[in-house]
Design a protein around this nucleic acid. Structure first.
Length: 284
DNA sequence: GTACAGGCAGTAT
DNA sequence: ATACTGCCTGTA
């Protein structure tokens, strides 16, 4: 079931932000829960506070038929190589609201900054949870965040993103955005819903769809993926493009990549993304 | 000081 | 339709 599964590699692959190492354990925030990850006899062992039944199954999508998915995305020779190179990499399933706030904060910045913003949000608006004598903070609910003023959000280091965070909080808290309905909806329908919200564009919508709304065919295109497409998959696109892509280029590229990589395009994206970052020698 | 970092909305062509 | 621009903040 969990063959070749490397949770530490996966949590450090740029999909999730609120994980930190203390001693030999990793601790992560998963909505209202703190997850602890230890290595015991070379095998991962998970604990959750308060307890969340089979949290690793949920988080790391161990319910997916990974062999079938790997085979499916291996239709592409480049991805086939990456599937072999990174056998431990998994997509992470996130809490929709945490995912959405995380990626709204991720626009036009880098991972250390995203982590800082999210830590500040949890400390100001989340609830404290003590684990192993250390204090962690849960991820605040949309209602918690919606109670804050834009200036209070700004004070978390969000900058101009504060307005977008507030808009997301409002649409969730008011019930206008219904995650369950979005899970049931098609990729296109769900994406259109997300795009209505101020601050949510193509890339962030696709991240939320892939990482939290079960749309495994979503294919987020950030600058790294755009670079990969521009160098390895030129033929997918008629016209030249670089890593800075316009909204229209995003649309057409997204359409052709989703078609080409298939129903698990999001997994293919994750292998490519991880590979590009590895090659660039990025420190997470 | 300047450039840049995992986008987006607003405005002008 | 497509191009250009400003935007918070921190680091190199």
């Amino acid at each position: 079931m969990s063959q070749g599964f490397d949770p530490v590699l996966s949590i450090n692959s740029g999909q999730v932000f609120l994980w930190e190492k203390h001693g030999n354990s990793w601790y992560g925030i998963y909505g209202d829960h703190v997850i602890r990850l230890d290595e015991v006899d070379g095998r991962p062992e998970f604990s959750s506070f308060p307890e969340l039944k089979s949290c690793e199954q949920k988080m790391f999508r161990l319910d997916d038929d990974i062999n079938k998915i790997r085979e499916d995305v291996s239709r592409d020779p480049f991805v086939r190589k990456l599937v072999k190179a990174y056998p431990g990499l998994r997509l992470i399933r996130q809490e929709p609201h945490q995912c959405m706030f995380s990626f709204v904060c991720a626009s036009n910045t880098n991972i250390p900054m995203i982590r800082r913003m999210l830590y500040n949000l949890t400390r100001k608006f989340g609830a404290p949870v003590k684990v192993d004598g250390k204090e962690f903070f849960t991820f605040p609910s949309a209602a918690d965040i919606n109670r804050a003023t834009i200036d209070e959000l700004r004070a978390c280091g969000l900058g101009y993103r504060a307005k977008a965070v507030k808009a997301v909080a409002e649409s969730i808290a008011s019930g206008r955005l219904d995650f369950q309905a979005l899970k049931n909806a098609s990729y296109e329908e769900a994406k259109q819903e997300l795009l209505q919200i101020y601050g949510i564009g193509n890339k962030i919508a696709d991240c939320v769809l892939l990482f939290s709304l079960e749309k495994l065919d979503a294919f987020p295109i950030d600058v790294w993926i755009a670079r990969a497409l521009a160098s390895h998959y030129k033929w997918l696109h008629k016209k030249q493009f670089s890593d800075k892509i316009t909204a229209h280029q995003y649309e057409t590229l997204s359409g052709s990549t989703r078609e080409y990589f298939g129903r698990y395009a999001g997994y293919a994206q994750q292998y490519i993304y991880y590979h590009m970052r590895q090659n660039a020698g990025k420190k997470w």
